[in-house]
Amino acid sequence: MTQVIEGMELVYEKPQTMTDAYLHYCPGCGHSVAHRLLMEVVQEMGIQDRTVGVAPVGCSVFAYNYMNIDMQEAAHGRACAVATGVKRVMPDKFIFTYQGDGDLAAIGTAETVHTINRGENILIVFINNGVYGMTGGQMAPTTLIGMKTTTSPYGREQATMGYPLKITEMISVLPGAFYVTRQAVHTAAAVRKTKKAFEKAFEYQKLNRGTCFIEIVSNCPSGWKMTPVESNEWMEKNMFPLYPLGDIKVPTQLN
């Protein structure tokens, strides 16, 4: 129950579309900010009873513990296929997946590409922090060149480990992709923009015009072995040059 303060207006509180569960994420992790923004939009649009989410395997595997909506937990990489199944039998419901970089851009690449290529009317939320967080900080497809992880202990070397995968740019060229944007949640301004992107994506889902894809470049203080504040600074300096924020594909015609 939110406290009442005499002479003051309540201007921000936790959305009721989030459960009371204690978030298991590490201190400073962007995952829960993204969870909260999604749930704020669901609450403000009044679509809690028409929204079904699909959780991934990775740090956000327990997303369904925090989002107070009907949810399905998919196998690793298969969230887009699961969401396709859900959406096809309930085309009038709002369906989203929530996936990390390993889930979406490594093991689930085929499902991601083909779901968007079919133009499934779902929202794909893609959290990119360049590392497998849940399993202890291993190299991800989006890990930067030179970045140290537990499976690239001397830094990611292009010659043997390949390049960071810019999957968001890749899928943006698919005709099935309707709205593609890259955002962040590390500052108040970035959070406001990301929330706007979520609002647009849910509005667009009503149009049945294709897949909305929102990448959120985020931090992993534990995986990167930094404090939360340091991790956000490092992200701005190192992640954003390769993964620049902003819209990648916006609908030209909305009707």
């Binding site: 939110t2 406290q3 303060i5 002479g7 003051m8 207006e9 309540l10 201007v11 921000y12 509180e13 936790k14 989030m18 978030l23 994420y25 201190p27 400073g28 992790c29 962007g30 995952h31 829960s32 900010v33 909260r36 949640v185 590390h186 500052t187 108040a188 959070v191 406001r192």
Partner: peptide, 14 residues
């Protein structure tokens, strides 16, 4: 807005 744990409730004088 940036709090990852949704731990902060904010009030303002009207």
């Amino acid at each position: 807005l940036v709090c990852p744990d949704v731990a902060i409730t904010v009030y303002r004088q009207p």
